[in-house]
Design a protein around this nucleic acid. Structure first.
Length: 301
RNA sequence: GGUGGCGUAGACAAGUGGUAAGUCAAGAGUCUGCAAAACUCUCAUGCGGCGGUUCGAUUCCGCCCGCCACCU
């Protein structure tokens, strides 16, 4: 089940910095296959709004963990981790190639690369409904009784986290023996980070948003609705789909949607920067050449 | 020209004679379970300007400036 010391390449960075492109380039150069680490691109049908790479852009490089889930159902980190590990095993042992993990979902990458202890626990809607009525203070008390270990580290003011923690604790039994210390790393990763100065990134995000609209993002949302994706669920998907749903429901005009969405994407990009900033393993690069050099050295050992 | 109303942070906006709510934006963060999510922190010595009344004015008065509405 475990992979020991397998070299993997990990490409991270905020949205709109060109991760997909450089990943394909490196995959071709170093004989790799790509594993997406994007919490929304796993869903089928969310293409334009998530900026999913097209067949043509893949240039023949196999991509894993895209289009593997229905947007109607919730997909979780635990599932991601499991499937990504499987994909890595397949790429390393069957294909004898270099796995390249690429994406902006820092938490997914952390779960995978640092081997977080995540037994699969499906959402319990009934329980959630009940818990949602309680205050954070009450929730925190409940969690303390159920899983004092988890309660110690949790953000006690965050209802979302508290509810999920309670859900997990209940599912696993009275005192879950989760391993909260980082497990030994199973992979030998090389982290490459892509970023841009704020001003440039802002501009790129805006241009890309207009391009997405031109390319039929609104039609895509309508199609998803027709296929039975509720507006409520669409809003849960965040960013483009959240604002698209509000627009289709008539709560926002098209231009309001564009402006609010643009702001939201920028805020998201900053959150990604905050996340990746603290991982000192990341080599922040400016050019493709730098990336190539790093990878060559990495594989040479 | 007249009459009335308004003028509070980048935007919206509440408010009081006793020392400026809130929301958004912006910035900084958190992170082992919905992570494109959720959460935390910071952000007006100053309420259009100048005077006056007052122990004290953003709040009352006067003038000026600007905007809006209506009237001539």
């Amino acid at each position: 089940m475990k992979i020991n010391g397998e070299k993997i390449l990990v490409i991270v960075g905020p949205t709109a910095t060109g991760k997909s492109g450089i990943a394909v380039l490196l995959a071709k150069k170093f004989d790799g296959e790509i594993i997406s680490a994007d919490s929304r691109q796993v869903y089928r049908g969310l293409d334009i709004g998530t900026g999913k790479i097209t067949k043509k852009e893949m240039e023949g490089v196999p991509h894993h963990l895209l289009d593997i889930a229905s947007p109607k159902r919730k997909f979780s980190v635990a599932q991601y981790k499991k499937l990504a590990e499987k994909a890595i095993r397949y790429i390393v042992y069957k294909k004898k190639k270099l796995p390249i993990v690429v994406g902006g979902t820092g938490f997914y990458i952390q779960a995978l690369v640092d081997n977080l202890d995540l037994p699969e626990v499906p959402p319990n809607l009934e329980l959630r409904k009940k818990l949602e009525k309680k205050s954070v203070v009450e929730l925190f008390e409940i969690l303390k009784k159920l899983d004092p270990n988890r309660a110690k580290g949790i953000d006690s003011k965050n209802p979302r986290r508290l509810i999920r923690a309670i859900e997990i604790a209940k599912h696993l039994g009275q005192v879950p023996a989760l391993n909260f210390k980082p497990s030994p790393t199973n992979y030998k990763p090389l982290f490459i980070g892509l970023d841009l100065p704020d001003k440039e990134l802002k501009k790129k995000i805006r241009m890309r948003l207009f391009a997405r609209i031109r390319n039929g993002m609104i039609t895509e949302a309508k199609k998803l609705r027709k296929q039975g994706l509720s507006y409520k669920r669409m809003e849960e998907l965040g960013l483009e789909y959240k604002f698209l749903a509000k627009h289709l429901k008539g709560e926002l005009t098209k231009s309001e949607m564009i402006e609010k969405l643009n702001t939201a994407i920028w805020q998201y990009a900053k959150r990604q920067q905050t996340w990746f900033k603290r991982d000192k393993r990341i080599h922040w690069i400016k050019t493709k050449k730098e990336a190539e050099k790093l990878v060559r050295k990495f594989l040479g050992n």
